[in-house]
């Protein structure tokens, strides 16, 4: 994942694109299972979602992270994908995946510096098309988890649009949004000039005494995010919280 300076996102964590307004995700999935053009997407939507009232402890989830060519989903593309299946109780790291793909957009040098995936790495890797099927089947029936949902949502949407001619819609539990809610300052605190705590992944993890992991590797970042969600759920939400309160 690309890391934003706190100021860029801190104040608007919910500015997350088109799908913030979806009220009933399972219903949208049922509809899209009929409407989607491509077969892989129809099967993905047909797998459905747990009802919004399902306690979070019973919901299968998938932590997801992309490294990308840049910040703009319309101009850029995905370079690597990290996937880690999980529940509230356990992170199924043994079933996790990490794929490097060849972006259809230019890979600028400054992003290479961040994620360490070089031009020759991507040159010898397949196009995302190769992994669409396994990606969608891992996502099917699971609720996606990411830190700063806008990146993962927009990049996947545009990557699909470019390859299948249609985009994808799915709810995301955003650990950054959760952390913003958890650490939100009261009116009085803000009035007294207290600084809002950092929402960056590494900083958020520290608050739960999670160990330091080296950032900017899609699998490690997905794993970091998965551990953070477990810690957040256990510490602040509890197993009975309906998944509908958490996904957007």
């Amino acid at each position: 994942m690309l890391y934003l300076r706190p100021g860029q996102v801190l104040n608007e964590p919910d500015d997350s694109g088109e799908d913030i307004s979806v009220g009933d995700w399972p219903a949208l999935y049922s509809a899209l299972a009929e409407q989607a053009e491509s077969k892989v997407l129809r099967e993905f939507y047909a797998a459905g979602l747990p009802p919004a009232s399902t306690p979070i402890s019973e919901v299968p989830m998938l932590a997801l992270d992309f490294e990308t060519t840049g910040m703009d989903a319309e101009q850029g593309d995905i370079v690597s994908i990290g996937l880690v299946p999980m529940t509230m109780a356990r992170i199924y790291n043994r079933d996790s995946c990490h794929w490097v793909v060849r972006p259809r957009a230019h890979l600028p040098g400054d992003s290479v510096v961040i994620h360490g995936i070089t031009h020759s790495d991507v040159a010898s890797s397949p196009d995302l098309n190769r992994y669409l099927q396994p990606l969608l089947s891992l996502m099917a029936g699971r609720v996606v988890v990411a830190h700063y949902r806008k990146m993962e949502r927009n990049f996947l949407h545009h990557a699909m649009l470019q390859r299948l001619g249609e985009g994808i819609r799915f709810p995301i539990i955003d650990t950054m949004t959760l952390e913003a809610e958890i650490t939100r300052l009261t009116f009085w605190q803000r009035l007294r000039g207290q600084k809002a705590p950092s929402l960056r992944l590494a900083e958020a993890r520290k608050r739960y005494h999670l160990p330091f992991y080296h950032p900017h590797h899609a699998h490690t970042d997905a794993l970091s995010c998965a551990e953070l969600l477990q810690a957040q759920l256990i510490t602040h939400y509890g197993p009975k919280t309906p998944v509908g309160d958490l996904w957007r």
Partner: peptide, 13 residues
């Protein structure tokens, strides 16, 4: 390393 799963426990649990 490939076979490791992970779990988080709050202090006191």
């Amino acid at each position: 390393a490939q076979s490791v799963d992970i779990a988080y426990y709050k202090a006191g649990t």
